[in-house]
Computed example of a mutant assay.
Amino acid sequence: MSLEGIDHALRRRTEERDRISGDMLDLDGHPSHELLKGLAATGETARRWEQAQVRLVTLWWLFDAYRRVLDHAEELRAAHRPDIAALTGLLAGPSVELKPDAVPVEKRSLLRAVGEWITLDVVLARMDEAYREVAETIAAVDAAWTDLLPRLDRADAARRAARDLATGHGIADPLLDRVDADAARLRASAGTDPLGSASLRGEMDATAAAAVARRGAMEQAARVREEYAERARLLAERITRVAEAEDEARRIRDVVTAKILAPALPDLPDQAPALRDRLGALATVGGRWLELAERLTGLERGAEEALAQAVRAAESIGGLIGRRDELRGRLSAYQAKAVRLGHAEDVALARLYGAARDLLWTAPCDLRRATVAVAEYQRAITRIGAAG
């Protein structure tokens, strides 16, 4: 190499050394690396971290050898008369000696009896390989913690809120105790073996969901403790409305049965007595606020559903009377149309009209036959109208 080439190569190698030094210091100071260094890792994380530590030793050992060669080259270049041959050998030739006793364990071989001389480029390639392996392990651990810990944090936040409510209101909750135990176990696993805990994501999410559910149960129990008397009073009123709605459905059924022939009626609800019994049974729950909240909320929901069911039944049954009245209206409208068309005295139309009217104004009314009769009368008038 020429002196100019040596200066160029030395400058490039020096910049390369400084960049590598910065990268290695960044790797050493990575937050997850700092945590791993003080971690009693277990499982898959322990296995990967042990391998990474061996590679880290190799990386620093190789970097030290690389740096020593460059330091020596800089000393030679600073001489009054630089030894160009020696500099060329250092920068371009096999200038780094790997002695058998100095080579890291994972690089040794029982068959190697003498040291190995390698170039700076080979040293750089081996450093890059070791760096990548260590960086990949640290990045994998960091990604696992980044994924797992927020899941546990969500569960912890909900658990703490639930626990505060339970303590403040003197509520015992075995289910919350179980969530606490599960969360502690999962956090311990994620803390010491994040790589092996990836398969526990679903369990962590389930624990978080269970914690949120317990918090909701505690909030509900606290509300019930404060509002029980008023909610019980309103519930009693709602059950009374259910009974009234069911009575109304039965009244409408009796009317329809008398006025409509063989109606297809839905089953009539009769839930008010059972709802009253359930309301009375709440008094036996005493101060078990979690159980009381669950039963009271379920009873409130049941009362709402029973009221809606009774109203639907009444509307469905009453619709048969509405159907009869709608047919009566249609028959009257088409009779008026027949008069406008000048066929008020038409014997055939009068016969069809009379048959439909007899069916609609006879109790009980045969809706099926009445519908057919009105349709026949309608078609006859439509044909007259079309003929002009």
Results as ranks from 00 to 15, higher is better:
Gly5Phe: 02
Gly5Val: 05
Leu10Lys: 12
Arg12Gln: 15
Glu15Ile: 07
Leu27Lys: 05
Ser32Leu: 12
His33Arg: 12
His33Ser: 11
Thr45Tyr: 03
Arg48Gly: 00
Gln53Cys: 08
Ala65Leu: 14
Ala65Pro: 06
Ala73Leu: 07
Ala73Ile: 08
Ala73Ser: 12
Ala78Asp: 11
Ala85Phe: 07
Ser95Val: 08
Leu98Trp: 07
Pro100Gly: 14
Ala102Pro: 01
Arg112Glu: 14
Val114Ala: 15
Asp128Arg: 14
Glu129Gln: 13
Glu133Arg: 06
Asp142Gly: 14
Arg154Ser: 12
Ala155Val: 09
Ala162Val: 11
Arg163Gly: 15
Leu165Tyr: 03
Thr167Arg: 15
His169Gln: 07
Arg185Asp: 15
Arg187Pro: 04
Ala190Phe: 06
Thr192Asn: 08
Thr192Glu: 10
Asp193Trp: 03
Ser199Arg: 13
Ala206Ser: 13
Ala208Thr: 05
Ala211Gly: 14
Ala217Tyr: 05
Ala217Lys: 06
Arg225Val: 06
Glu226Asn: 08
Glu227Asp: 10
Arg231Phe: 01
Ala232Thr: 10
Leu235Val: 05
Ile239Lys: 02
Thr240Leu: 10
Arg241Met: 09
Glu244Ala: 13
Ile252Trp: 00
Asp270Trp: 00
Gln271His: 07
Pro273Ala: 07
Leu275Gln: 01
Arg288Gly: 09
Leu299His: 04
Leu299Lys: 04
Glu300Ser: 04
Ala308Arg: 13
Ala310Thr: 00
Glu315Phe: 00
Gly322Arg: 12
Asp325Glu: 11
Glu326Trp: 01
Leu327Trp: 00
Leu331Tyr: 07
Ala333Thr: 12
Tyr334His: 08
Lys337Met: 10
Lys337Leu: 13
Ala344His: 09
Ala344Gly: 08
Asp358Leu: 12
Cys365Asp: 02
Val374Pro: 07
Gln378His: 09
Ala387Thr: 08
Gly388Arg: 11
